[in-house]
Amino acid sequence: MNFLAIDASTEACSVAITFNESQFNEYELCPQSHSLRLLPMVDSVLKQANCKLAELDGIIFGQGPGSFTGVRIGIGVTQGLAFSAQLRARGVSTLQAMAQQAYIEKGERSVIAVIDARMSEVYTCYFELDEQGVMQAKTAEAVLKPELVAQYYNDMAIPAYGVGTGWDAYKDLAALKSNPDSPEILFPTAEAMLAIGQIDFSQHSVDAENAQPKYVRDTVSWKKLPGRE
């Protein structure tokens, strides 16, 4: 099966393709400039693989949580590409992708992902490896005050391998992770999303228009008018 994966949910921007058994990846840190880099990177991996969009079986995209604008840039591009080539699309969690990366690079089997969600909160989730070699969430993905994270994982096998930008932002969480230094895996990659998303793609995929973000933080800081709350 042939798939393209794209992600622009965090400071990192990445694309990956698997086509006729060959895989090509591109990855850059490019805060605030995903809109300049994403489509050129897509074009680059398609050319390296000598693949046309229509030859793909689907597109896998970073669904969040992360930067709202970044997630939507990735999804806007996914929708445009998928609709234009009549492909289905499947979203993969950025937290799950980081956990998967810990398995790919380090062979880790249980992972806590914590990323800085700004506004004194983190996005977090706990994952364990399943028998297919895919990291599966054992809790709901949550947006939490850092001081509530330990309690959230009361029933989990803690400490676990830590990934994400949240650990450096909130040093008090350090006891929850098994790797004592700053995490090596800070951002999700399209490569890991490709690994997760291509398994059982058809059951989990949607039409272009239903490729939608999972924001996790669903509230906005704006206040409603009196009487409308």
């Binding site: 489509l39 939507r72 840039i73 806007g76 445009g80």
Partner: peptide, 16 residues
């Protein structure tokens, strides 16, 4: 943010 939705969809549709 609103502009980027139309830009990302429009630009990638044209590409495809």
């Amino acid at each position: 943010g609103a502009l980027l939705v139309g830009c990302s969809i429009g630009r990638s549709l044209a590409y495809g």
